[in-house]
Simulated scan of single mutants.
Amino acid sequence: MSLLRRTCALFLGAGLLLISACAGTSNASDDGTSASGAETRAVETEQGEVEVPADPQRVVVLNYALAGYLFDLDVPVVATTPEVTDSDGEFSRFWSEKAKAQGTEFLPWSNDGFDLESIIAADPDLIIAGGIGFPLKHATDAYDRLQEVAPTVLVSGDKQTWQDQFSFIASDVLGRKDAYERFESAYDDRVAEVKDNITVPEGEISILTLDSKDTPYILIEDKSLSAALEPLGFRTAPLFEENDIEPYIAGGDMFGPSLEVLPDILRSETVFVVGFNNASIGVDDLKGEAPYDRVPAFQSGQVYDLPSWSMRGDYDEAMALLDTVEDMFPATQ
């Protein structure tokens, strides 16, 4: 790490002027090249145009759910945030090997925001942040400060599917559209194969996600995991559209009905249960428990567990989800 960046970290509490000086050492020059002579690329974002290095070598990803796309593309990720706030973090089984080979580290973060000093210490030449939920909120709140550390691109909260997120990062940010299209083609082929191999339950589905029995959320139709299941023939009940309940956070992919009204709102014939930052919670924890015992799908037995990593799945998780669904709903003979 350069002396200037170490100085920035030491004097963070004194203000952001030194951070600005740090960023200046890696920003693009007037002729559109970086200090090392590498070309840059202009990326259009909701925050405006951002000039990023064409071949970044020290990427910091401030959303665990977005890191997999960088590893899929073999882009060097020096650091990312853990999946859960205030935790040591654990690499995803889908990209653990690459993260260890690259020496990727975890950066602390909390419900209050990111740790700016640790981001500076990572010495990034590009920051990728945003996505869905808290990571987007924190990145939006800290955007101006992050830009002073390194060029920062926020993935819009409107990009709710892995295709939208991966396409933006690969094509717009990294200029690797052809690589993304190969991933997309492989996924589409697998979707067609699985769709032919399964029998989809009749009626509509909903996805119930929880971090505990007392905090139920329902995923909004046509977003994230709901959108991933629909190409297979599942139809998501429009529960968000039907009920006057705000998303749990602006731009979020779920809403939180109270326990008292949950049985009336969660009316779909089939319900999938997914742990929200909690891999251990599932159908067996809810069966026979109030108010879940009054939810129609629980009463009929049409409830199924999905792995917690499918909640906001990236490309690798979306592919693995196809395997899970294929095993869960085999075609009738």
Rank of each mutant, 00 (worst) to 15 (best):
V61H: 03
V325D: 01
Q163T: 12
D123S: 10
N277E: 12
H138D: 07
K137D: 05
L16I: 04
E230N: 12
G251S: 12
G301S: 13
T161L: 01
A67R: 00
L286C: 10
F168R: 10
I265E: 00
V295I: 12
A237F: 02
Y69K: 10
L321V: 05
P151E: 07
D293H: 12
A54L: 13
E90A: 14
S92F: 02
M1I: 06
F234M: 09
A79N: 05
F329Y: 10
V173L: 11
Y69W: 09
A227H: 03
A9K: 13
Q160D: 09
A38F: 10
V77G: 00
S185Q: 15
L259P: 00
E39M: 12
D55R: 15
D284P: 09
P124N: 02
V84C: 09
W95A: 07
E246G: 04
A179Q: 13
R235W: 03
V77C: 02
E246A: 15
F71Y: 15
V61A: 06
A65E: 11
L219M: 11
T332R: 15
S87M: 12
E90S: 14
I132H: 03
V303S: 02
I281Q: 06
D112S: 15
R267G: 01
D327C: 02
E269L: 10
A170S: 14
G133R: 08
A28W: 04
P53F: 02
C8L: 05
I265W: 02
E105I: 03
Y64V: 04
F329N: 09
G233T: 07
A318L: 08
V61S: 05
D178P: 05
K100S: 11
T199R: 15
G68R: 02
D172H: 10
N243W: 11
E242N: 15
W109C: 00
V52M: 05
A186S: 15
L136V: 02
P124H: 02
L266P: 00
L306A: 05
R5G: 03
P82W: 05
L321Q: 13
T140H: 10
S224M: 09
S185N: 14
D55W: 03
T270F: 03
Q57I: 03
L174S: 07
R145W: 03
K177L: 04
L208M: 07
R235I: 06
